[in-house]
C-alpha cells in the first residue's frame, strides 16, 4: 500500500516504491479559491527538498509549490496546464502536480501523516 505523507506547505506526497506523487491538499485548494493557472516542472529536473518547482495561481494569489523531498522529476501532469480548475475539483486525486524518483527515502520521516496534518491545519486556523 502507498505511503501517504503531508508537508507544512500543504502538499501531499504518495509513495509507491521509489516514486512519489505530489500535489496540493484539499485544504490548500479551498484557501486559494478558484485556481486559474498551474505551471508544472520539466521532466528530468533534479530538485532538492524545499526547492520551488511548480506554481499555482488563483485570481488573488500566486504560490510556489515546493518539492517536499529530493529527487528527479519523472512525470508532470499535463492535464493541469489545460484545465487548472481540476485542482479545485480533485486536489488530492486527479490534480496531482508531478511525480519524482526519491533520492533519499529518509526525508519522508520529516513529513506528517494525515492525522498530523489535520491537527496542523486545525492549529494554524
Amino acid at each position: 500500500m502507498a505511503i501517504e505523507k503531508f508537508s507544512k506547505d500543504h502538499e501531499w506526497v504518495r509513495v509507491e516504491g521509489d516514486i512519489a506523487t505530489i500535489g496540493i491538499t484539499n485544504h490548500a485548494q479551498e484557501q486559494l479559491g478558484d485556481v486559474v493557472f498551474v505551471e508544472v516542472p520539466e521532466v528530468g529536473r533534479k530538485v532538492s527538498a524545499g526547492e520551488a518547482v511548480a506554481v499555482v495561481e488563483s485570481v488573488k494569489a500566486a504560490s510556489d509549490v515546493y518539492a517536499p523531498v529530493s529527487g528527479e522529476v519523472t512525470e508532470a501532469n499535463a492535464d493541469l496546464a489545460a484545465n487548472s480548475a481540476l485542482v479545485n475539483e480533485d486536489a488530492e486525486g486527479k490534480a496531482w502536480f508531478f511525480k519524482m524518483r526519491l533520492a533519499n527515502t529518509a526525508e519522508l520521516d520529516a513529513l506528517m501523516d494525515r492525522a498530523g496534518y489535520d491537527a496542523f491545519v486545525k492549529e494554524s486556523a
Binding site: 486559474v36 493557472f37 495561481e57 488563483s58 485570481v59 488573488k60 494569489a61 500566486a62 510556489d64
Partner: peptide
C-alpha cells in the same frame, strides 16, 4: 495580475 508586484512581490 498574479504576475505583478502587488501579489507576487519578490517573484
Amino acid at each position: 495580475s498574479t504576475r505583478e508586484q502587488h501579489i507576487r512581490r519578490e517573484k
